[in-house]
Simulated assay, not measured.
Amino acid sequence: MANKARVFYGERLAGYLERNDQGYSYAYDKTYLKSSDSKPISQTLPLSKYPYNSRVLFSFFDGLIPEGWLLNFATKHWKIKGTDRFELLITLCRDTIGAVTVLPVEEENG
């Protein structure tokens, strides 16, 4: 199970979302921050060189998770718990309607 995800704004890597023992953290990528045309992924997560931390999944990311039939499909066929919002996010938000895409960072072996 992945505990870290890459967050893209359009085609550009914007930052990293991580699930940890304290909850969640989101940090913008340093290269993304250096670009003069970088935009925040959300108004609730303005550009910052400091990471954001939360005990629950940030509402912006939680809002990307689909509802209805796609959520039911994921929980039934991929056997993802409906309460595992991070796993739902990295499974279902690889191709979103908006500009933000979330992809899991595969764990390295060794």
Rank of each mutant, 00 (worst) to 15 (best):
residue 32 Y to N: 03
residue 97 I to V: 09
residue 93 C to Y: 05
residue 40 P to K: 00
residue 31 T to G: 12
residue 29 D to T: 11
residue 15 G to Q: 01
residue 102 V to G: 06
residue 27 A to V: 14
residue 65 I to G: 09
residue 105 V to F: 10
residue 50 Y to A: 10
residue 34 K to I: 08
residue 34 K to E: 08
residue 56 V to I: 13
residue 92 L to Q: 01
residue 59 S to K: 09
residue 6 R to C: 13
residue 7 V to R: 00
residue 51 P to S: 12
residue 39 K to S: 08
residue 38 S to M: 10
residue 48 S to L: 11
residue 47 L to S: 00
residue 90 I to C: 03
residue 35 S to N: 02
residue 88 L to M: 05
residue 98 G to E: 11
residue 17 L to G: 08
residue 53 N to W: 02
residue 100 V to R: 03
residue 97 I to K: 05
residue 77 H to S: 15
residue 59 S to P: 04
residue 86 F to I: 04
residue 33 L to A: 04
residue 4 K to A: 05
residue 60 F to D: 04
residue 93 C to E: 00
residue 9 Y to F: 07
residue 88 L to F: 09
residue 9 Y to P: 00
residue 42 S to E: 12
residue 48 S to Q: 08
residue 25 S to R: 03
residue 11 E to S: 06
residue 95 D to Q: 11
residue 75 T to N: 09
residue 107 E to D: 15
residue 8 F to K: 03
residue 27 A to I: 10
residue 29 D to V: 15
residue 86 F to M: 02
residue 46 P to M: 11
residue 67 E to T: 13
residue 58 F to K: 01
residue 39 K to F: 03
residue 47 L to M: 09
residue 58 F to V: 07
residue 2 A to R: 02
residue 53 N to F: 14
residue 55 R to E: 00
residue 101 T to F: 14
residue 89 L to D: 00
residue 24 Y to A: 03
residue 110 G to E: 11
residue 21 D to W: 05
residue 28 Y to I: 00
residue 73 F to Y: 15
residue 27 A to R: 14
residue 11 E to T: 10
residue 64 L to K: 02
residue 91 T to Y: 07
residue 9 Y to E: 01
residue 69 W to R: 05
residue 86 F to S: 01
residue 27 A to F: 12
residue 83 T to L: 13
residue 48 S to M: 12
residue 57 L to W: 03
residue 102 V to W: 01
residue 96 T to K: 05
residue 87 E to V: 04
residue 77 H to T: 11
residue 105 V to W: 00
residue 60 F to A: 04
residue 23 G to W: 06
residue 5 A to G: 03
residue 20 N to W: 01
residue 50 Y to P: 01
residue 85 R to V: 13
residue 91 T to C: 07
residue 107 E to F: 13
residue 12 R to S: 10
residue 94 R to L: 15
residue 64 L to E: 02
residue 10 G to P: 04
residue 97 I to G: 02
residue 51 P to T: 13
residue 53 N to M: 09
residue 24 Y to E: 05
residue 34 K to V: 00
residue 82 G to V: 09
residue 31 T to A: 14
residue 104 P to I: 12
residue 27 A to N: 11
residue 42 S to I: 15
residue 28 Y to A: 00
residue 5 A to R: 02
residue 24 Y to D: 00
residue 53 N to S: 06
residue 15 G to P: 07
residue 12 R to T: 09
residue 90 I to E: 01
residue 7 V to W: 11
residue 60 F to R: 05
residue 77 H to A: 14
residue 62 D to I: 03
residue 68 G to K: 09
residue 73 F to G: 06
residue 96 T to V: 13
residue 26 Y to C: 06
residue 24 Y to L: 09
residue 102 V to P: 07
residue 104 P to V: 11
residue 17 L to C: 12
residue 17 L to H: 09
residue 67 E to G: 04
residue 27 A to K: 13
residue 46 P to Q: 09
residue 97 I to S: 04
residue 78 W to L: 15
residue 94 R to P: 10
residue 91 T to P: 06
residue 87 E to K: 02
residue 30 K to M: 08
residue 97 I to H: 04
residue 38 S to R: 14
residue 33 L to H: 04
residue 44 T to C: 08
residue 85 R to I: 10
residue 97 I to W: 02
residue 31 T to Q: 13
residue 110 G to P: 04
residue 24 Y to V: 10
residue 10 G to A: 10
residue 80 I to G: 03
